[in-house]
Design a protein around this nucleic acid. Structure first.
Lengths: 230, 230
DNA sequence: GGGGGTTAGTGTTGACGTGACTTTAAGGTC
DNA sequence: GACCTTAAAGTCACGTCAACACTAACCCCC
């Protein structure tokens, strides 16, 4: 603990984030998973797309560093943030040794609108990515797998939605993430059985059909540190 | 990526491991989870017990570094090793900033016998630990939760056993880890349904009752990188 | 060598969750 | 008011699993 491994061995520590959001697919119009990428402006992999990230800030916890780097590079403030994995293989960067502690995050549609969409930040369909820098392609694949697994047994879908939402909207999130269709009746049963949805008492008005009830997400027992993981 | 965060900000990177093994409890005689701890010989927390670990080796991947540090400090070679979490809160070490990438491991009983049990390495019952250095108590708690969760939906229990084992032995592992009793008939059905157990054809002889069949663990599809996580 | 003890292994039953599907309710539109 | 559309509730069959009963195969002991 006294010898700093980083000084002697020049291991640099980065924090990156895989950010997911939902918006319609340009071709089909279906709700689809998107994620923002940043164009690299230095070697190695100059000009290629990569995950937003940066060096760990000395005075910040890991999650806070991920969040701030995210804010700085993309302007996004996620509504869900969880550590994904620490990637540190020797050969994952051609020059230096870089250990990346990667987080994954979910953002709401209103955030997406606020995000900077400048020259070096662009949104891509999660399942149709260009070749990425470093090992970021496999990192995104892993994050995708984790998201799809976790949404099936944990109520995180609401992180893609505004405060109040209908069951149809919640189901649309699941369908978009999992790329399937779900039976509305069965989805309703299962969603209400989880006890994490609280009806607001109001209904969404202005539809050309029966008005659906609005719900709000209510956290159950606070999750133990650091996460539950199942 | 060009600025090394570690040099400027003196963040050191450590790799530690929570190692689990099974042996009888000294009081009850029941099979119980144990883990080896290392006594710290330097400040901070000098004299206190801590997880085995050390600085990340420059020429090793993360998992390899965990394995080698383990070998060096405790003499143990695990049969299962998985990344647990990266702990990096600013205040987790009183002096320097230390980010620990923590792994968890399972070892077989024959390994436990081979392990060094010197002055500064000692085995403890996992649920009856003394106060540990740094945030290692909460790390162990998290590893315990992960082990108990993962053993229920993944065939890792065999990593506590020799190559060939009976279903009763496998069930005893589950019971020891989860601290419950399990129905032998239902456990058998569920274990055989997973298709990961291959009968060797032979039976364990020398028992004072009906001889049980011996099984061997056969890996199914190789797990995707980095892990499956569910 | 037969009865009893012990564990291995098989079978049966009922409760529960879930997928597929039907039915009723509540709006708007024409 | 007929009709369309989606919300919401209800029905049914099937598979899973916990609980429990039952048979099988050894050893021990008298």
């Amino acid at each position: 603990m006294t010898m700093s491994s980083s000084i002697d061995q020049r291991v640099s520590l980065a924090v990156s984030t895989v950010i997911f959001a939902l918006r319609p697919h340009p071709d089909s119009g279906l709700m689809t998973l998107w994620l923002p990428l940043v164009r690299r402006i230095r070697e190695p992999y100059e000009g290629q797309w990569a995950l937003p990230g940066g060096p760990l800030e000395a005075d910040e916890d890991l999650a806070a560093s991920a969040q701030h780097t995210l804010e700085r590079t993309t302007g996004l403030a996620p509504h869900y943030l969880e550590q994904l994995y620490a990637f540190g293989n020797v050969d994952r960067s051609p020059d230096d040794r870089v250990v990346s502690i990667v987080y994954w995050a979910l953002v709401r549609p209103d955030e997406v609108a606020r995000a900077v969409d400048g020259e070096n930040v662009e949104w891509f369909v999660a399942d149709e990515l260009p070749p990425l820098a470093f090992d970021h392609t496999s990192i995104v694949d892993y994050a995708l797998a984790r998201l799809r697994a976790k949404i099936t047994y944990t109520p995180i879908a609401h992180a893609f939605l505004p405060e109040e939402f209908t069951l149809a909207e919640l189901r649309a999130v699941h369908e978009a993430v999992l790329r399937t269709t779900l039976d509305p009746a069965n989805f309703r049963r299962q969603a209400l059985a989880s006890k994490t949805l609280v009806p607001t008492g109001t209904c969404l008005q202005g539809t050309s059909h029966r008005p659906p009830a609005l719900f709000r997400f209510e956290a159950g027992a606070p999750s133990p540190a650091p996460e539950e993981q199942r």
